[in-house]
Design a protein around this nucleic acid. Structure first.
Length: 882
RNA sequence: GGACCGUUAGCUCAGUUGGCUAGAGCGCUCGCCUCACACGCGAGAGGUCACUGGUUCGAGUCCAGUACGGUCCACCA
């Protein structure tokens, strides 16, 4: 790295006459690539490295403005850290694993994954890919999982190129040699290896239990993937019947139950009310019979029952919602499941329905979807006159899989879990404590992490009944009847990873034994996409594959991400690092906000208000868009603002023009564009440098706290004052002052420019690099971050200091005179024939040494100073011509 | 129901440990071709800092509460 203020290696200065922003992005991107400007030097020691756990964007469509926003935040920090002397490890990942990609590949190629099919090495992508008409005509082709994954690679490779192009255009200082894709072999290996280790240590386990089930995708889903949606529904009052001889408080023989899911009546296993509810206390321990089906069910007490809801007594079905699961478990009830994995009513009635009428009614429901079953059930209830009154329409929150479009059901199935503290207090406490090992930016985001862990009600369900993902690396031996023995899964050796149990035979078996009695069966499930992305630090840092790199980068320094995925990505990553390395995965988490559209709603595709990032970059220029993004405070949702981008463009142009001025003196006279602190002798120049030193301190402090927005705000504010005041004041002296004065002005301008370009470099990488290249060698992005002590040294002459407020006093004096010109609607170039300036003695003392600059900038022949209470001026202007 | 964040000029937002007449940009109004920049420059108007109490010599800033907006979680018979 060259000395920041040396120009020994500088090329001959070339300052364009009409500098512009057009084309800077492509030109500098190519240069940075060619010169390896952002390449990671893996010989650096851990303490000198700053490693970033870049979020891998989902490769299933296109990037949006939110990506531009948050990735810019990270990039400003990366650039600062690089200039501050850290070797930045800044890889890029692509998340091409999971449901969004799977769907896209299915549609694009017209294929359907069939995990039971053998791998076909000669399979080629259909040549009508991307032609929906042709695909519709021929129908989907069934292919093996491995062939399906091959196709995923084909399609995602195209997206990844487009994403990289956009990120380069945006100016991310990523080392493009360091990248991964969550479905690539390396990630599969890491993902399977981590799972096997979880299994070996008892952190992963399988169990047959009710779990959340998405009927559209026919897969289990995890608690972290739920979202609530408001749906219309209706309370239906059903008449349950008390045993003969007893009666309810109202004297009737019926007990009324309110439910929004009458279609589950056949799955009812009990009724439940609050233990303190006097209305139902007499019934606890007794049984009632269900309407229509005539099944005898117990009436039980549980404190989760809410006396205020419905009629205060609920029917427990297996399973209508998560509360049913709790009741079922804690009250030790029967299973009477009627909904299958496709979201339809089972053809066979559950145990317990004995009556002919009950069986006939069930037959009318069998095979129906949940929606039609409900309508049919209501009709049956009307017929038997066991529907009390009319259904009462309500709107309520219903749980959905975040990528699903039908309400979640609860289905009993065998699934794999990883412990996450949801059922284990000690682990929960330990994971919450991991949060204290990370510095959160902004700090209150840690509360969300803690709250999420506190609210967990089960372990992390990681198996998915899908195809495109990392397979669970497991096989099961088959008994003599050909049934899998789940308790003794067969695992591969780590050296053989990755494996696909649906096409690779289990160790110790050969392929001919697949599915045969005494043979083996491969697990057909894949892992949750978060089970892979939760390993992003391990993957990026070369865990178990590149120990040297790993030792220099892990645990990582920074995880930047959006706040909405604290519960998924952030938390699951913490879980994996806790188990695997007994550490927090990073030292810092920086949470970015969202982009809101001008109506203050979250920008989303469905609302049709997304602006494509490339259009934005084309229209405003990358620096301008980055400027807007960097104005969004950490963690704060930010409105999309065209105006801020225009402002950013204005700033970039101003930097060019100001630079042209500051560098415009050396070339004419043939002197090199050196910066010699010794030449800076004028008090105004020195005062300006002291102000700049203060700015450097502020910007550095802000960046050290990951507050890029503050660093930008301060730098920008100082810069505009610099151009409006300082440049105007010293202009005459720089052009035509005596030699010492002129040289002082020129050297100070260049020192200021050199400093400002470096302060702006993290935000506006293109324009700063362009200007830097006019007069300096090397990339501005590899220069040392400025330090204030050098500026303070330069401002000190023979041990004598100058009062930094001198600059403000001089600027105020000039502004006062300009105000007169403006008020009289005259040009600022109008000569001042006489001027008397009044100010306090203290301020006049500061003004005297720099009065020459003020006089010249005011175009005055002279300025008389008079002591007074406050600043004021009497100004006589040259009469207007004509 | 619990938690967190926010409420400052027409708009978007600063205001760091409480301290001089509350700031910026945009927008608006009025001017100005001034040898870096008209993709510019100068000036001006515009705010009871959501509300109510409290602490203090002093509160936009601290405390308590209220209202409104947002987010997360829980509940959802």
């Amino acid at each position: 790295m060259s000395h920041p203020d040396s120009s020994a290696d500088a090329p001959a200065p070339t300052i364009p006459d009409r500098p512009g922003l057009e084309g800077l992005e492509d030109r500098w991107d190519a240069t940075w690539e060619e010169q390896g400007t952002y390449r990671f030097d893996r010989t650096k020691a851990r303490a000198d490295v700053f490693s970033i756990d870049t979020p891998p964007p989902t490769v299933s469509g296109s990037l949006h403005v939110g990506h531009v926003f948050s990735y810019t935040h990270t990039d400003t920090i990366a650039r600062y850290q690089r200039m501050a002397g850290r070797e930045v490890f800044y890889p890029m990942g692509w998340d091409d694993n999971g449901l969004p990609t799977e769907r896209r590949v299915q549609n694009y190629f017209g294929v359907r994954c069939e995990p039971s099919m053998p791998y076909d090495p000669d399979f080629a992508a259909p040549d009508d890919a991307g032609d929906p008409k042709a695909i519709k005509k021929r129908g989907d082709v069934a292919i093996s999982r491995r062939n399906f994954i091959d196709l995923c690679h084909v399609l995602t490779a195209e997206d990844e190129q487009a994403f990289e192009a956009l990120f380069r255009r945006l100016g991310l200082s990523v080392d493009w040699n360091q990248h991964y894709a969550t479905i690539d072999e390396r990630c599969q290996r890491a993902s399977q290896r981590a799972f096997l280790r979880n299994l070996a240590r008892g952190e992963a386990y399988q169990i047959e239990a009710p779990s959340l089930w998405d009927v559209t995708h026919r897969t289990a889903v995890a608690q972290a993937e739920l979202e609530d949606r408001e749906r219309p529904g209706a309370y239906h009052r059903l008449a349950f019947h008390l045993p003969a001889g007893t009666s309810a408080s109202d004297g009737s023989n019926d007990l009324h139950i309110a439910t929004t899911r009458p279609e589950l009546l056949a799955a009812c296993v009990a009724l439940v009310a609050h233990p303190d509810d006097e209305r139902y206390q007499p019934l606890f321990g007794t049984t009632v019979t269900t309407p229509v089906f005539g099944v005898e069910v117990p009436v039980l007490a549980h404190e989760l029952a809410d006396p205020e809801k419905g009629t205060g007594i609920a029917m427990i079905c297996t399973f209508g919602d998560t509360t049913d699961v709790i009741w079922w478990r804690e009250l030790d009830l029967d299973v009477r499941a009627i909904i299958n994995r496709a979201g339809r009513v089972n053809p066979e009635p559950p145990q317990g329905i004995g009556s002919e009428a009950g069986l006939a009614a069930y037959a009318r429901l069998a095979g129906k979807t949940i929606f039609s079953a409900q309508a049919e059930m209501v009709e049956i209830l009307r017929e038997t006159q066991e529907l009390v009154g009319e259904p009462e329409a309500i709107t309520h929150q219903v749980k959905f899989f975040e990528k699903g479009d039908k309400p979640l059901e609860i289905v009993t199935s065998r699934q794999w879990y990883i412990r996450n503290g949801g059922r284990d207090t000690d682990l929960r406490t330990a994971l919450i404590a991991r949060g204290d090992q990370m510095a959160w930016h902004p700090p209150y985001m840690q509360t969300r992490y803690t709250n999420w862990i506190d609210g967990l009600n089960g372990d992390w369900l990681i198996s998915r009944q899908r195809f495109f993902g990392v397979p669970l690396p497991l096989w099961y031996p088959l008994d003599e009847d050909g049934e899998p023995i789940h308790d003794t899964p067969i695992v591969p050796a780590e050296a053989d990873l990755p494996v696909d149990p649906s096409s690779d035979p289990a160790p110790g078996y050969n392929e001919s034994q697949r599915g045969r009695p005494g043979g083996f069966a491969g697990d057909t499930d894949v892992m949750d996409t978060w089970a892979t992305s939760s390993l992003s630090p391990q993957i990026a840092c070369g865990w178990e594959e590149d120990n040297d790199l790993f030792a220099r980068t892990y645990p990582m320094d920074l995880r930047p991400q959006a706040h909405d995925i604290i519960r998924t990505w952030l938390f699951s990553t913490a879980v994996r690092s806790h188990f695997e390395a007994d550490t927090a995965p990073w030292g810092h988490c920086a949470l970015s906000g969202w982009i809101l559209d001008p109506d203050r709603k979250k920008m989303s595709k469905s609302k049709g208000n997304v602006v494509t990032p490339l259009d934005l970059l084309d229209k405003h220029g990358s620096d301008a868009v980055r400027y807007w993004a960097a104005n969004g405070r950490p963690g704060t949702d930010t409105a999309f603002d065209d105006g801020q981008m225009k402002n950013g463009r204005r700033l970039a142009i101003k930097i060019m023009n100001a630079s042209r001025f500051a560098l415009g003196f050396g070339t004419d006279s043939g002197t090199p564009l050196a910066v010699d602190p010794e030449a800076i002798t004028d008090p105004l120049d020195r005062a300006m440098l002291l102000g700049l030193a203060g700015l450097v301190d502020e910007a550095t402090q802000a960046f050290d706290g990951f507050d890029y927005a503050r660093a930008l705000e301060r730098t920008e504010a100082w810069f505009w004052t610099f151009t409006d005041d300082h440049v105007e004041l010293v202009k005459s002296r720089a052009y035509e002052g005596d030699e010492a004065g002129a040289e002082s002005a020129r050297h100070a301008l260049r020192l200021a420019l050199s400093t400002l370009l470096r302060l702006f470099a993290p935000f506006l990488p293109f324009v700063t690099e362009e200007v830097w290249s006019w007069w300096r060698g090397g990339s501005v992005h590899r220069q040392a971050w400025p330090t204030s002590d050098k500026l303070r040294d330069a401002a000190t002459v023979d041990g004598e200091h100058v009062d930094p407020t001198t600059a403000a006093v001089a600027a105020a004096a000039l502004a006062e005179i300009r105000r007169h010109k403006t008020t009289e609607k005259r040009s600022l170039a109008t000569p001042v024939t006489a001027c008397t300036l009044t100010d306090t003695a203290e301020r006049l003392a500061l003004l005297r040494p720099v009065l020459g600059d003020v006089t010249a900038a005011a175009r005055a022949t002279g300025i008389d100073l008079v002591e007074g209470d406050a600043l004021s001026a009497e100004v006589t202007l040259e009469p207007a011509a004509g």
